[in-house]
């Protein structure tokens, strides 16, 4: 068996005595779609924030591609190829869809400190940006400001922006939360398409999405890992059923 691309050892985060994430050992295998599930307040988003360095862990270590990233800054983790999305759709509201994606593509130029140059130098990225936008089914909204897009389309745009970085690993925080049924199907199909050559770790509430999509599942409750394995294993785990689905499902 190969080495995990992302692993944590004893990852812990305390907020003034409240332990949000408690000694989590997580192992994500390369090429997998790995789901992080659990009831509200289980520490899933905190976990994401720790992994992408938006929060500093109280204890524990994080390794990405064999490298200890525990002490790194969030922007530098992103540069290593570990890129996250946010639970609340994170778009640049007053930029157009094209500009949203282009800001990410711009990273490929290295740092953009060239304040004396015209932004026209960015037009050579437009073609690639259009392709990415088309990929997520938004081609008719290329020049629409992101703020005017529907919620589902904002999420799609966010994924296109993330994909623009061509990250080795994507962390998706509830990619289908609050979506209509059609939107969910669109996003699931999209995730299926973009998984080639990538590893994805996602927080997801919608169990049917998890069942059809994910290779491995980690269940968190109260900051601890309750169970791990594929959907069949996890869904039969009595404690998971108790904690996650409620006792009436037993």
């Amino acid at each position: 068996m190969s080495e995990p691309i992302l692993s944590t050892q004893g990852l812990t985060r305390e907020f003034r005595g409240f332990v949000a994430v408690n000694g989590v050992d997580l192992q994500v295998m390369p090429g997998n779609i790995h789901a992080l599930i659990g009831p509200n307040g289980a520490g899933k988003t905190t976990c994401f924030n720790l992994l992408t360095k938006f929060l500093a862990p109280t204890r524990g270590t994080i390794h990405f591609k064999g490298r200890d990233i525990t002490g790194m800054k969030p922007a530098d983790v992103a540069r290593l190829g570990l890129v996250r999305s946010f639970q609340i759709s994170a778009v640049f509201a007053h930029l157009t869809a094209l500009e949203n994606v282009r800001v990410a593509l711009q990273r490929g130029r290295g740092a953009s400190f060239d304040f004396w140059r015209s932004e026209e130098v960015l037009h050579n990225l437009d073609q690639r940006a259009r392709e990415l936008i088309e990929d997520v089914g938004l081609s008719e909204f290329v020049n629409t400001p992101a703020v005017q897009l529907s919620y589902g389309r904002k999420r799609a745009l966010e994924i296109a922006t993330t994909l623009a970085l061509d990250p080795e690993m994507m962390l998706l925080d509830e990619p289908t939360a609050g979506m209509t049924h059609e939107d969910v199907e669109r996003i699931v199909a999209l995730i299926r398409r973009i998984r080639a050559g990538r590893t994805i770790l996602m927080v997801e509430h919608n169990l049917s999405v998890v069942e059809g999509l994910c290779d491995a599942i980690t269940v968190l409750t109260r900051g601890r890992v309750l169970a791990e394995g594929d959907y069949a294993t996890v869904s039969r785990h009595p404690e998971v059923i108790e904690a996650y689905l409620g006792s009436e499902h037993v």
Binding site: R84, S85, L165
Partner: peptide
């Protein structure tokens, strides 16, 4: 979001 795209 800008940070998560790798901008310092």
């Amino acid at each position: 979001r800008a940070i998560s795209l790798g901008y310092r």
